[in-house]
């Protein structure tokens, strides 16, 4: 039997109420829903209203149960369309992100955007909840960072950079450089700091992310490269 659900999501402080029309129906022969789970089908849209291809999408169950492993998820196709085949029955948040394009995972507190809350979706076993729309928040500026030895200026390949909220260092995300030894840091809207660690080097910490971003703007305006180089001194 076809079930129609109207879910009204009102955002605190927002002037717009978002209305999602979601339909839960049995899976069709073309949709493979994992046994014991349900499906979620929908689209991801960028802030300009266009569908976003190759975004990662996942569902987080709101069931007060332990979780270890991979959140059920998938990627969007060239039309921004996604299908999650193994969502847990019950209520789920649906998140989307595409870091290479400047859209971070909004479930990480430092990137949470109250103006674009994730849709809450009810999943039923063996059925597919369709019409789920995920709107991405504002695109973040990207800082390109290199970490080098202060004396030799050679890249330090085993450095890590940690980003954390200025008022709460217990929340943090640490990353390794890419294959070229570069870091890409997405600049959150709220105040944030960076810490740089590398074995055998003195730690660089409490670097103001927005001040670094401003310095890049000055560099670019002066015709210089759009990147930041952090020098680490060897530990004594």
């Amino acid at each position: 039997m076809k079930t129609l659900m109207l879910i009204f999501l009102a955002t605190m402080g927002a002037t717009v109420t978002t209305v999602f029309l979601q339909q839960s129906r049995p899976a069709t022969s073309l949709e493979s829903v994992a046994p014991g789970f349900g499906g979620i089908a929908g689209y991801v849209f960028a802030p300009d209203g266009k569908p976003l291809a190759n975004a990662e999408v996942y569902a987080e169950a709101l069931d007060n149960a332990p979780f270890v492993g991979r959140m059920p998820g998938s990627s969007t196709d060239e039309d921004g369309k996604f299908f999650i085949s193994n969502a847990k029955p019950g209520s789920n948040w649906v998140y989307a992100f595409k870091e290479e394009d400047g859209y971070p995972d909004p479930s990480f507190s430092i990137y949470r955007d109250a103006s674009t809350p994730p849709p809450q979706v009810v999943v039923r076993k063996g059925e597919v909840t369709r019409g789920v729309i995920v709107h991405l928040g504002r695109k973040c500026e990207k800082l390109l960072v290199s970490v080098v030895d202060a004396d030799t200026h050679n890249p330090i390949k085993r450095a890590t950079i940690t980003i954390y909220p200025a008022n709460n260092p217990s929340i943090r995300s640490s990353s390794a450089p890419d294959a070229k030894g570069k870091f890409e840091i997405l600049v959150p809207r709220s105040p944030a700091r960076l810490k740089v660690l590398a074995d055998g080097y003195e730690e660089a910490s409490d670097l103001n992310v927005h001040a670094l971003s401003e310095s890049v703007h000055v560099q670019v305006a002066a015709g210089e490269a759009n990147k930041i180089t952090i020098l680490l001194r060897r530990a004594k």
Binding site: F108, S109, S170, I171, S173, S174, S175, A176
Partner: peptide, 9 residues
Amino acid sequence: ILSDTVDYP
């Protein structure tokens, strides 16, 4: 391991 994130979401 590409990244390691700690949060209280």
